[in-house]
Design a protein around this nucleic acid. Structure first.
Lengths: 206, 206
DNA sequence: CAAAATATGGAGGTCATCTCCACTTGTCAA
DNA sequence: TTGACAAGTGGAGATGACCTCCATATTTTG
């Protein structure tokens, strides 16, 4: 899957240079404030080369974070294999927040790409979602977690955390969200709060 | 606060025309796909006029949703006055989702503006946050809700819901998030899941 | 009604994005 | 090694969105 086309030596070199510089700029947080053309010059290649390797900003972001996301997913599988399902889920979500905290670039990237609705980053995004889905499913099967609120909700909460990365008390609030999600999930009993919430009195708002 | 400058008659008329067309385009969902210049023509005014009234896309969005957000906030106060704190909070959050569902434009707008970090929409955003903060505070005072997870976390979850507005099962997942948040908040006892989650094994990811 | 104040609109400037192709570099068979 | 073909390069310039500017038009005021 990774070996579709053997890249020529210099092409490979340029690609790496691009990625290296991109990582640098990402961690500095200035990726989205930078002219894409200037970025090419910055990495020491022509704009044409930049565009051939990465047709869009999003494609570059995807490439940059492909590795990190893969690592995150591996970690999820590893946790799942060594911990009780519920703890694995908790550890993963907490770890996710810690990771975003340490790599602000990722949070901002995810937020921007999500909102842009670019559909790019699809690969990584789907991979992450799959990991979460598996973790939740396992916890549900264990009976440790309610079954009436899919993993999608957890993903939404995660998106929210990423999207709000520039709030003043980000870390504390992010941890708070995870706490709410985890405790909310644990409440598998007395499903009283779920039923009945169609339209309510929204209409009257006019 | 609203009467800083008496607008000339025709200016007022143009402003209304702009806002009216904007609402229309918003609800059709195409606001962010439309050239700003074309929008002026669409509303029947020159680009200069558009820019004089609304210097940026965000300013226009802010103006369009100013009324709606105000209504939402009123509703929050009203609920707070007539329902037990916990129910008021629940009703408000559920209503919020319902409102976004009915007005897709709002969800997309909030998402985009949040991610753009434009800082615009600040007024409405702060107003909403204040409303949520009040609702949560009241519920905490009632003892119906834990006090170790500020309203900021709830806002983050709300952002997440808005940011993910284009997911396939949006409505169901959004309701799920609210359910988790509410149930998570109710768990005011046995605060076992909060402590101890600093760095964990994030370092090992490397 | 004339003058002063206020607002209009769209032509054109500016700037980031992306394309295109004449040229360079790498690869490989003989 | 060398020649020749494939693969890749880079940057000038086309494209198109955003915004400004000002000669003209419309309201308001005295």
């Amino acid at each position: 899957m990774t070996a579709a086309k053997p890249l020529r030596a210099d092409a490979q070199r340029n690609r790496e240079a691009l990625l290296a510089k991109a990582r640098e700029v990402f961690d500095a947080g200035g990726f989205f404030d930078l002219r894409f053309d200037d970025f090419a010059r910055l990495a020491g290649v022509g704009t044409g080369t930049l565009y051939r390797h990465f047709p869009t900003r999003e494609a570059l972001a995807e490439a940059v974070y492909h590795g990190e996301v893969a690592a995150l997913c591996d970690r999820a599988r590893q946790l799942q294999a060594t911990l009780p399902a519920e703890e694995a889920l908790a550890a993963f979500l907490r770890g996710m927040v810690g990771y975003m905290d340490a790599h602000q670039g990722l949070a901002r990237t995810l937020a921007t790409l999500m909102a842009t609705g670019s559909g790019a980053l699809a690969e990584g995004s789907r991979a992450l979602e799959q990991a979460v889905t598996d973790l939740v499913a396992a916890a549900v099967k264990d009976g440790a977690v309610r079954d009436d609120v899919g993993a999608g909700a957890v993903m939404m909460a995660l998106h929210g955390i990423g999207a709000a990365h520039d709030r003043p008390g980000w870390r504390a609030e992010a941890d708070g969200v995870i706490t709410l999600v985890l405790d909310g999930l644990r409440r598998s009993c007395s499903g009283d709060s779920q039923r009945e919430h169609e339209q309510e009195s929204v209409g009257e708002l006019k």
